[in-house]
Design a protein around this nucleic acid. Structure first.
Length: 270
DNA sequence: ATGGTCGACTCTCGA
């Protein structure tokens, strides 16, 4: 199937960690005009709600929901279709305000969408890493409720986990990194096993499918020193309708780039 | 070799 065929009559959902939404409008504008994806899931908006660029999305024809805070974290979903049943964070006993700016749950066109910015974890001996591992268990509990139903479920975002050795540029060197350590890989995979399929891997089994290139590594993109830490996943009912997935390096190559790329899943809904 | 560069916001943190 060629790209033109894929782009016609398909439902497109993209995940993109912007690393400050206000600093990326020069990227989002041409990208949304060119791609017109149905849903854009955004992480690291780094903006308080009263300062969120609502008008920017309205002018592009997108509905928008969001929750953020100053400097850190923040999630948003933009959509060409109405966004329904919006909620933030976990509804569990461990609930904190931090969850609310990391997890956005909503429904678009009958598809349940979960957009997550998973805690990074700092270092494997830091309490933040334990918190990260716990976060995946809490997600699993959330999914056990949702996935018991018969509908379409999509989970995407910056998971801060490269699940397999082929998902990082230097697996031996990165064994103790919080985004590749064996415990976090297992925690992520355990949550995925609750009932999700990795849509990028379904169509791209080859190595080197990186979604993130560190600013601090000079020439990381051209040297292919990346990580696959952003993911698009679907439950079995929705995965059956998937027809492709693509990483767009464009946003990583533009002036004042984000350190993440835009990752899109394509579906033929009917 | 244990760096490097961003963004927000304060002189530092988080990634």
């Amino acid at each position: 199937m060629n790209l033109t065929e894929i782009q016609q009559n398909t439902f497109k959902i993209t995940t993109f960690n912007v690393n400050s939404i206000r600093a990326r409008l020069h990227i989002l504008k041409p990208w949304l005009e060119a791609n017109r994806v149905d849903v854009l899931c955004i992480q690291e908006t780094k903006v308080q709600d009263h300062e969120f660029p609502v008008k920017f999305f309205a002018e592009l024809g997108y509905a928008i929901v969001f929750r953020g805070q100053k400097s850190y974290n923040g999630v948003a979903v933009a959509s060409l279709h109405p966004i329904e049943d919006v909620s933030f964070g976990f509804d569990d006993e461990e609930h904190t305000g931090d969850d609310d700016v990391r997890l956005l749950h909503c429904t678009v066109n009958g598809i349940k969408l979960i957009n997550t910015y998973v805690p990074q974890g700092k270092s494997i001996d830091d309490p933040a890493y334990r918190y990260k591992l716990r976060w995946f268990q809490r997600l699993k509990a959330l999914f056990s409720e949702i996935l018991g139903q018969n509908g379409l479920v999509f989970w995407c975002g910056d998971m801060n986990v490269a699940p397999e050795p082929e998902d990082v540029h230097s697996p031996e060197k990165l064994a103790d990194h919080v985004c590749f350590h064996i415990d976090v890989r297992n925690a992520f995979k355990d949550t995925v096993a609750a009932g999700f399929e990795d849509i990028l891997r379904k169509f791209h089994p080859e190595p080197g499918q990186y979604t993130f290139f560190d600013y601090r590594m000079p020439g990381s993109v051209t040297k292919k020193k990346g990580w696959r830490i952003d993911h698009v996943l679907a439950n079995k009912h929705l995965a059956r309708l998937a027809i492709g997935a693509e990483i767009d390096l464009g946003p990583r190559l533009m002036e004042k780039p984000s350190d993440h790329t835009a990752l899109t899943a394509f579906f033929k809904l009917h």
